[in-house]
Design a protein around this nucleic acid. Structure first.
Lengths: 223, 223
DNA sequence: CACTCCAAATTTGTAGGATGATTGGGATAT
DNA sequence: ATATCCCAATCATCCTACAAATTTGGAGTG
């Protein structure tokens, strides 16, 4: 039984190298890449090969090219771009439901694993929600509320969960906004999750779970 | 203020056309594409342009090329490939946790939205679990159990949830297997979720939620 | 000096040709 | 029938040339 040829095409090798440069931070987001000519020499490949590699990454969402100007790093995660494309073809309710699934798990995990650092950050986010509430600025409140929820997800200490939650939140922004301000007059108090923060602070897993279940149930009613 | 030029590069146009052919089913999975020469004529572009387009889709996971043989359609979803690459760099526990989050939500949604068709399918999967249990064939049981859980996810009628669950299950297969057979002697009865199926059949949302919470809690203990 | 405008340089986009590498199948010999 | 060899088909890589878009810098003007 012969070993499968492990031959990797030159294009794929270049793609991998560029990916590593981006993920490793050598080429941070916004960075302008050297022109094709220089990259050809650096990687030791022809222009065609280099261009196929670059365009693969453009399509993946990592790079962005503009004729006459150059190529810049656009994102460090290919998953986000793929997600956005997939969600575009999917319906928003489905995305929202999956996001709620993540949120539910996040609350429980956050209560279990949160550090003091996390609690501090979550409370700061909640304070911003209260500021916006005082000013009766709904737009700002919605933004602060979303940041608040992301802080909780961050406290799970699960990077994948955090990434997925973020990738789903952005395309849903307008929907979340519309659902939140559905009730007029807007009841700020009900939307500020004091009880959830308390549960996370005190590592009261059951309390966090219970509160989020109620919150999500109420949220789903509005769909 | 001039409108931004909406010029789309030839490469991207070709990419879109091919994507549509694949998603639309004109080029089903496994289909062999015409050789580059023909595609060049069909799309009216040069070799370089066509090859950049094709390689973008290869990197996205939709196509697969083999030198000397040809190009075939590999998948109709770019998300799966992006997911696998992302998960590779992530740790398995994190992936498992996210998968459990989806599972929890799925049980509740399945109990709510399941059709008679879904119930039938779920019960068939459970029957296969029981067959494997009777034969004391652990390997087959694990496979059947995974299929059983996927049937439940399918009953949610949420395509995105179903896709994500599937994309996460495949890379986790060996982990799930190891965790399941951790307890020796293997207790088949405990692993067959009669109670869950009953709850879904009777659309007992609370019952499904409660059972899955217990099941997931027990599962997490083993991590 | 400050500003405008245009031409040149830079950079990516597209085209087409040439050659190498790999695969698969058919012809041939045993 | 089997095994071997050879060749056609196909993708992989490299090369040159030109087009199109953008940026840059300098000449000219007030």
């Amino acid at each position: 039984m012969l070993k499968k040829t492990n031959r990797v095409s030159l294009v794929d090798q270049v793609v991998s190298q560029i990916e590593h440069l981006i993920e490793g931070g050598q080429w941070p987001i916004g960075e302008k890449l050297p022109p094709e000519m220089e990259l050809m020499e650096e990687f030791g490949v022809s222009r065609n090969t280099l261009r196929e590699a670059i365009h693969a990454l453009v399509h993946a969402g990592l790079l962005e090219t503009k004729q006459g100007s150059g190529t810049v790093v656009r994102s460090s995660s290919a998953l986000e771009a793929a997600f956005n494309r997939h969600i575009e073809k999917s319906n928003l309710i489905e995305t929202l439901e999956v996001r709620l699934a993540l949120e539910r798990e996040a609350a429980e995990m956050a209560a279990k694993h949160r550090t003091d650092e996390d609690v501090k950050e979550i409370e700061e986010c909640m304070a911003q929600c209260q500021d916006a509430a005082k000013k009766d600025d709904i737009e700002e409140f919605v933004k602060a509320d979303i940041t608040f929820h992301q802080a909780i997800v961050k406290a799970t200490n699960n990077q994948l969960l955090q990434d997925l939650y973020e990738y789903m939140t952005d395309p849903l922004y307008s929907s979340i906004h519309d659902i939140m301000i559905m009730d007029i007059p807007f009841d700020y108090d009900k939307e500020i999750h004091h009880e959830l923060v308390r549960a996370i602070r005190e590592q009261d897993v059951e309390g966090a779970k219970k509160y989020v279940n109620e919150y999500i149930h109420a949220f789903k009613q509005r769909l």
